[in-house]
Design a protein around this nucleic acid. Structure first.
Lengths: 151, 151
DNA sequence: GCGGTTACATAGCCTGGCTATGTATATTGG
DNA sequence: CCAATATACATAGCCAGGCTATGTAACCGC
């Protein structure tokens, strides 16, 4: 017996996942291409984390941002050269480096946010107020989705 | 006179844009790190476009995916070597190369979708049904947001 | 049919990923 | 208390994916 079933674009979980990733990827690529943030996407996220959560070790940053440890070391190198972060010793464990955001790093983060918003603003303006309101809620759901799982 | 105003995480347009981009970036990075799709994010989007919309010229693909033309040429090179696309002449304009997806390309795209869904499935499972429904809507709003503007 | 334009390819560079490995500091077991 | 092991970060070396500048072949317009 045939069971009727609504098939939307994101009807199955696989379709939902694929469509979310596809469109999110387009968004990220658009911003990377058009916003002159002066830093990479991962740099921006790492700066955001450092500002929100305070100093962190390289290994923890790498895990949180889903990159390998040497990748984070190199990222911190570049950000340190740019003056956005500084390395400081860990009191009591000489192996550990604590990475902290600097005043220049906070400014850079703010600049990046402006640049990104400038790219999206005209597109957001084309949406209906209802759609913008949805996006606000969706951003929060996305944050839940991306919450650390300790995997 | 002071006008009371609700300040949520995404209260202003800039905050909305920044938060959307931050979380979308995390999503993309997570998938890149954990899904063995065997291709890059831009390759996946290009394959998707070729399957959905049919053969396209290199220049048009580059514009649609927000990369420079030489970047798309190199991407097509790699995908052609992998057997996912083929280059074919344009009837009537000898300068143009039409890029078309192959059967192997369609299979690869399907494999990629599975791999990405496998990464997200456990996280989606942790959300409430209402939140999953919101994400479905989100994917559609995002699609509107990302619509080609001919900018 | 020559001059400009367009479409793609090539060359050369940099960043951002990765794995494998090195080095210094902690930690632990005997 | 010291040797062995484990941990934290750095270094080295690779490749993909982005960019600009430039080359080459085909088209178009006068």
């Amino acid at each position: 017996m045939y069971i009727g079933r609504v098939e939307t674009l994101t009807g199955t979980t696989e379709e939902l996942a694929a469509e979310l990733i596809l469109q999110s990827g387009r968004l990220i690529r658009l911003v990377a291409a058009q916003a002159s943030t002066g830093m990479s996407s991962t740099q921006a996220r790492t700066l955001a984390r450092l500002e929100e959560s305070g100093p962190a070790r390289v290994t923890d940053l790498a895990a949180a941002e889903h990159v390998a440890q040497p990748t984070m070391t190199a990222l911190v190198d570049r950000m340190e050269r740019a003056g956005y972060v500084r390395r400081q010793p860990h009191p009591g464990d000489g192996r550990v480096v604590l990475v902290a955001i600097t005043a220049a790093g906070r400014q850079q983060r703010a600049r990046g946010r402006h640049a990104m918003a400038d790219v999206l603003a005209p597109r957001l303006g084309r949406l209906s107020p209802e759609q913008r309101e949805q996006l606000r809620r969706h951003a929060e759901v996305l944050a839940d989705l991306m919450e650390d799982t300790g995997n």
